[in-house]
Design a binder for these strands. Structure first.
Length: 628
RNA sequence: GCCGAGGUAGCUCAACGGUAGAGCAGCGCAUUUGUAAUGCGUUGGUUGGAGGUUCAAGUCCUCUCCUCGGCUCCA
C-alpha cells in the first residue's frame, strides 16, 4: 500500500512538474547561479541563528532563486520569515568571504556530526559518488555494489561561522549579494528527497536577482500572471465553476464556457474527418474485466474511482478511453486493406487524482479528452505517428499561434522491471517514434523513466505567454494492446497479424486546453471562440428598435450577439463589453439610424468608424471563418 | 495523501471575545445618455459545516468539508 501511495505521489509530481515548471525569463548565467547558490547558504545561516537545532537538508538553485530544506522544532510563522529575511540582510552586510576547502569523508563526518541529513549525503557521496537519488538507484542496479569511491574528497564551504557541504559555485564574498534584490517568496512542506516515507521538512524559497529593478520586475510579472490566471478569468467571464456538493476537481461548465468547448470540439471533428478519422462513442463505465484485460488494474487502480459493486461484478468509471475503443476495433474482423483505422472520440474520463494536486481546470478529476486510437500495421506506424505530429503542428502553430512548443519523448528507465513487455518491443517502438520525430522536423528532447507502461510516449510541451510550460497532449505507441486485447488483422498472405496502436490527444482535454487558452489569450478570445462575438448597444430610447433589428440580422447570420438596449449609459455598456473582452461592439444612435450604418468598436483598437452592416458582417464572418 | 495558509452577501474585502459592515453586482425609481462606471433608494448573511469553551464566538478550542501555495531540482 505504501509503495503504491509513493508511486501515486511520484506520478502526481511528475505530471505537475510537467505543467508547472516556470522558466526564468531573465539570464541564468554562471554569475547569477553562483549568487543564488550563495543566498541558500545565507538563508541557512540565518535560520540557524533562530533555530540552532535545525537539521539542514539541501539548498539548490532553482529558476529565479533558490530554496533550502530544514527540519525544525516547530512550524514557521510569517513572523519568522520576516526575522530570517532581516537576519540575511545583516549577514550580507558583514562582507563575509565564501571559503572552500576539501576534506576527507571522515573529517566531514566529524564536522557534520549533528546533521543527520548531511551525514546521509556524505555516505552517498562515498558509496555512489553522487547524491542524486535516481543516479544512486541506477548505479545500484547497473553497477551492483562494485561502484565504490576511494578517497572521497568532500568540499565544504565556510561563510562566517556557517559551514555547509557544497560542491561550490559561489560568490567570492557576500558583498556581491544585493540585499535589496532578494525576497523570501514562500515556505512550505517538502519531503526529504521527495520521498513520502521520509521526514517532512520545511522548505523556504528565496527569489534573488542582481538588481532591485529585476526583483521588482519579477514580482510585477507574478502579479500580471495572477491576472491571467484561468481561475480568475474563468469567474469573470463566467466560463466554469465548481460546487462542493458535486465534488472537488469536477468542473461545471457554464453557458459561456460551453460555447468555447463546443467550438473547439466542432472544429476538431471537422479536422479529424479531413484527416481520415471516424467517430465513435462509448459509455462512461466498464466492468473490471476490461481493465484486467488492459492491464490497468495493477498499475492504475489507485487513480481510478473505486468500483461500483453490482450483481454481475464490479464496474469502474473509465479513467481512459482506450479499452472501450479497442472493443470497437474487435467487434469485427479487419483486413489489411482497411488499415489504418482511426477511431476518434471526445471521451469523458474520471481519475481520482490526489486532492492536493487539484488545480482549477489544469488538474481535475473528470475531463473530456480529445482522444483517438489509430490501428495500423507495423509498417504504417511511423507514417501514422508522423501524421499525428503534423496534426499537432497544425493545431498549435496554425490555429492557436503557439510557437513555443517542443516534444518530449519519454523512454523507460533503467529499471525495466517496472514496465510490461519485452525489450525488443520497446526498441522497435522507440525506433518507429524516433523516425517519425526526425521526419517531422519539430524540436524534441528525450527523457528517461517516464514512459507509460505499455509503450514510449511523446508529450507535447507548450509554453504560455506567462512562461509556464505545460503538457498539452500525450501520444503513445502501443505494441502491447494487440496481444492483450487480441487486436489483429488479416494480412495479404491470409495470416493474422497484430496491429500497432497509436494513442493520441493533440488537444489534450477540454479542461486543460481551455485553461491554457484562457491564459494564452488573457481571456480575449478570438471571435470564433468568444462566447459573445458582438455586443450591440443602443444609445438612447429612440434607438432600441434599430438595435434590435441589427441584433436580429446578426443572429440570422449565426453571429453570437448580445443586445444591450437597457437604460444604462453608453459609457457603462462599453465598459462592461470591454471587461467581458467582447471582440466587437456596435454602437447605435441617431447618426447610425439615419444613415443605416453601425459604429464599430473593435477590441484592442477602439472606434474604427461607422460602416454598413453588410460590410461589418463580411469583416467578422471572414475573421470567424479564418479563425483569426 | 502530506505540510502550511485561508474560507464573512453573487464578487472584492472590513469588523478588540460585546448589535456583522462597505464598494460593486442584483432589484426599484428617476434619467435617454456618443466610445471604459448617471443619480437616489433598496433587498441580500444561520460568518463553509458540526460540536465545545464563555454571560457572550465571525473572533478561542476540536473535528470536518472546500480553496490556495508547496511537496522534481541535491554536497
Amino acid at each position: 500500500m505504501h509503495l503504491t501511495l509513493l508511486a501515486q505521489f511520484r506520478r502526481a509530481y511528475i505530471a505537475r512538474n510537467a505543467r508547472f515548471c516556470y522558466n526564468s525569463a531573465v539570464m541564468t548565467d554562471e554569475k547569477m547561479h553562483n549568487i543564488r547558490h550563495s543566498f541558500a547558504h545565507i538563508l541557512a545561516a540565518a535560520v540557524l541563528k533562530f533555530f540552532p537545532e535545525a537539521k539542514l537538508g539541501v539548498g539548490p538553485v532553482i529558476d529565479n532563486g533558490c530554496f533550502y530544506d530544514f527540519l525544525l522544532p516547530r512550524t514557521l510563522a510569517p513572523e519568522d520569515i520576516k526575522n530570517i529575511e532581516r537576519e540575511m540582510k545583516k549577514i550580507i552586510g558583514r562582507n563575509l568571504p565564501f571559503q572552500g576547502q576539501e576534506v576527507s569523508a571522515e573529517e566531514a563526518r566529524t564536522i557534520f556530526a549533528k546533521q543527520p541529513f548531511k551525514l546521509e549525503l556524505i555516505n552517498d557521496l562515498q558509496k555512489h559518488g553522487t547524491t542524486v537519488f535516481d543516479e544512486i538507484e541506477s548505479n545500484k542496479k547497473i553497477q551492483d555494489t562494485k561502484y565504490e569511491i576511494q578517497d572521497t574528497k568532500i568540499t565544504i564551504y565556510k561563510t562566517g561561522d556557517f559551514l555547509d557541504l557544497c560542491r561550490g559555485g559561489h560568490a567570492q564574498n557576500t558583498k556581491e549579494l544585493n540585499p535589496d534584490a532578494f525576497k523570501i517568496e514562500k515556505f512550505s512542506g517538502a519531503y526529504w528527497r521527495g520521498d513520502q516515507s521520509r521526514e517532512q521538512m520545511q522548505r523556504i524559497y528565496v527569489v534573488a536577482f542582481e538588481t532591485k529593478e529585476e526583483l521588482d520586475k519579477y514580482l510585477w510579472q507574478q502579479e500580471e500572471a495572477k491576472k491571467r490566471d484561468h481561475r480568475v478569468l474563468g469567474e469573470k467571464l463566467k466560463l466554469f465553476t465548481f460546487a462542493p456538493e458535486v465534488g472537488p476537481g469536477l468542473p461545471l461548465w457554464l453557458p459561456n464556457g460551453t460555447i468555447i468547448r463546443d467550438q473547439i470540439e466542432t472544429y476538431a471533428k471537422e479536422i479529424e474527418a479531413e484527416w481520415g478519422y471516424q467517430r465513435v462513442s462509448t459509455p462512461h463505465i466498464a466492468k473490471e474485466d476490461l481493465y484486467k484485460m488492459s492491464g490497468h488494474i495493477p498499475y492504475y487502480a489507485d487513480s481510478m474511482y473505486p468500483p461500483m459493486k453490482l450483481d454481475d461484478g464490479n464496474y469502474y468509471l473509465k479513467a481512459m478511453n482506450c479499452p472501450h475503443t479497442h472493443m470497437i476495433y474487435r467487434a469485427q474482423p479487419h483486413s489489411y486493406r482497411e488499415l489504418p483505422i482511426r477511431y476518434a472520440e471526445y471521451g469523458t474520463v474520471y481519475r481520482y487524482e490526489l486532492s492536493g494536486t487539484l488545480a482549477g481546470l489544469l488538474r481535475v478529476r473528470g475531463f473530456a479528452q480529445n482522444d483517438a486510437h489509430i490501428y495500423c500495421t507495423k509498417e504504417q506506424a511511423e507514417d501514422e505517428f508522423l501524421k499525428v505530429m503534423q496534426l499537432h503542428e497544425f493545431w498549435y502553430k496554425k490555429v492557436f499561434g503557439i510557437k513555443d512548443f517542443h516534444m518530449r519523448l519519454s523512454l523507460p528507465s533503467a529499471d525495466k522491471a517496472k514496465y510490461a513487455g519485452l525489450p525488443e518491443g520497446w526498441q522497435k517502438a522507440v525506433g518507429i517514434i524516433r523516425g517519425a520525430m526526425k521526419r517531422s522536423k519539430l524540436p524534441y528532447t528525450e527523457v528517461e523513466g517516464e514512459a507509460a507502461f505499455y509503450g514510449p510516449k511523446v508529450d507535447f510541451q507548450i509554453k504560455s505567454v506567462i512562461g509556464r510550460e505545460e503538457t498539452a497532449s500525450t501520444n503513445q505507441l502501443d505494441f502491447l494492446a494487440a496481444e492483450r486485447f487480441n487486436l489483429a488483422y488479416a494480412d495479404a498472405d491470409g495470416k493474422e497479424k497484430p496491429v500497432y496502436v497509436i494513442h493520441r490527444a493533440p488537444l489534450g482535454s477540454h479542461e486543460r486546453f481551455i485553461a491554457f487558452l484562457i491564459e494564452h489569450y488573457a481571456g480575449a478570445f478570438p471571435a470564433w471562440l468568444h462566447p459573445v462575438q458582438v455586443a450591440v448597444l443602443s444609445i438612447g430610447k429612440g434607438h432600441v428598435a434599430y438595435a434590435k433589428k441589427i441584433a436580429k440580422s446578426l443572429e440570422q447570420e449565426n453571429i453570437r450577439t448580445l443586445l444591450r438596449d437597457d437604460n444604462e449609459s453608453v459609457g457603462k455598456k462599453i465598459r462592461e463589453s470591454e471587461m467581458q473582452k467582447i471582440p466587437y461592439v456596435l454602437i447605435l444612435g441617431d447618426k447610425e439610424k439615419s444613415k443605416k450604418t453601425v459604429a464599430v468598436r473593435q477590441r484592442g483598437k477602439g472606434d474604427i468608424g461607422a460602416m454598413k452592416l453588410e460590410k461589418f458582417l463580411k469583416k467578422i464572418s471572414d475573421e470567424i471563418k479564418k479563425k483569426k
